[in-house]
């Protein structure tokens, strides 16, 4: 068998093994590759950070996904919640998916263990699972009165009785709605809530959907977006650069640190808060590998074609 022919007929299982090794090795021995921050993620961070310490503003995170896309979306949620807890930003969470509700509980409890002074229903409030059929009525109802539209939190307590609802009435008090989704890029929010009530909408989406968000970023229907693991890695980094040091956001500083020659040290950061950045090391190695596979596959294809042509001429 010719070399080119053997390339064409290579058993796919060898490729799986190589890809698995390309993932495992960088995870065990991180390469410390740089994470470059981009404008859509920086815009989100800046907009959320602008309400640090304010009592009359909050953000709402809609967990619109199930566990199957958690590797991409969960680090975003952890980074967002951590940002809110560090900077004392009021946080609401909701899920219209039955399987999204336990992800909220998991994310909140995972971050909360590092913030003992943060209290449920005072600093944050989990609205819990609300039936999918009620998505539009709730989205529209929140424009008038959040407490009436959502009614209860995840524990069944009336929202109007909770301390967090003091000075929070409707979308005028919501700085941004963040939809973290594996199936829609904030569609319901920018279709129903934004045109009617003017609330800003941001998204965290799986990489498959990331390209779809750009037309909406360009029109301003989406204020910012995080695309896949890369987006999560960027947000993680911004939280470490600014929020952890109690600094206000500055684009220049973000670019100086993120785009500078030295990698921001990850050594003192707990693993759960740098998961996306370490994952991006493995991601980079696999991407290089896939490019190599495509190049080698094409070389094999053209060599094979040339050999066939020569055989035909003879």
């Amino acid at each position: 068998m010719r070399f080119s022919e053997s390339l064409q007929k290579l058993d796919r299982r060898y490729i799986y093994i190589v890809v698995a090794l390309a993932v495992i090795i960088p995870l065990i021995f991180p390469l410390g590759l740089k994470t470059y921050t981009t404008t859509p993620v920086e815009d989100l961070y800046r907009h959320i950070d602008a309400i640090a310490g304010r009592d009359d503003k909050a953000i709402l995170i809609d967990f619109y996904h199930d566990p199957s896309v958690m590797p991409e979306l969960y680090p975003m949620e952890i980074a967002l919640i951590r940002h809110c807890f560090i900077r004392k930003i009021k946080l609401f969470t909701i899920s219209f998916w039955p399987t999204g509700a336990p992800i909220i509980e998991m994310a909140l409890s995972e971050v909360k263990e590092d913030f003992p002074d943060i209290k449920a229903n005072v600093d944050y409030c989990n609205f819990g699972f609300k039936p999918n059929a009620l998505t539009i009525p709730i989205i529209l109802g929140m424009g008038d009165d959040i407490a009436k539209a959502v009614e209860t939190n995840s524990e069944g307590s009336k929202l109007e009785d909770l301390p967090i609802m003091k000075n929070i009435k409707n979308y005028d008090n919501i700085q941004i709605v963040m939809q973290i989704s594996g199936s829609t890029s904030g569609y319901l929010w920018y279709t129903y809530a934004r045109p009617r009530f003017g609330v800003d909408v941001g998204v965290g989406v799986t990489a498959v959907m990331a390209a779809d968000t750009y037309p909406f970023l360009q029109t301003g229907q989406l204020l910012g977006s995080m695309g896949g693991l890369k987006g999560a890695a960027e947000y993680e980094k911004l939280v470490d650069i600014f929020a952890m040091k109690g600094l206000d956001y500055s684009k220049k500083k973000a670019r100086d640190i993120a785009w500078g020659s030295k990698q921001y040290s990850l050594s003192n950061i707990p693993y759960k808060y740098k998961k996306a950045r370490i994952g991006m090391d493995a991601q980079a190695v696999v991407h290089v590998l896939i490019i190599l596979f495509i190049v080698i596959g094409n070389i094999g294809y053209f060599l094979d074609k040339r050999a066939e042509k020569r055989k035909y001429v003879k």
Binding site: V23, L27, V208, L229, K230, Q283, H287
Partner: peptide, 23 residues
């Protein structure tokens, strides 16, 4: 661009599972 992002998404899922196994 969409295909590149799709590759990234699929690899992210693999990374997530391998991270779970290793961690």
């Amino acid at each position: 661009a969409s295909f590149g992002y799709t590759v990234m998404a699929r690899i992210s899922l693999l990374i997530g599972r391998i991270e779970f196994l290793l961690e």
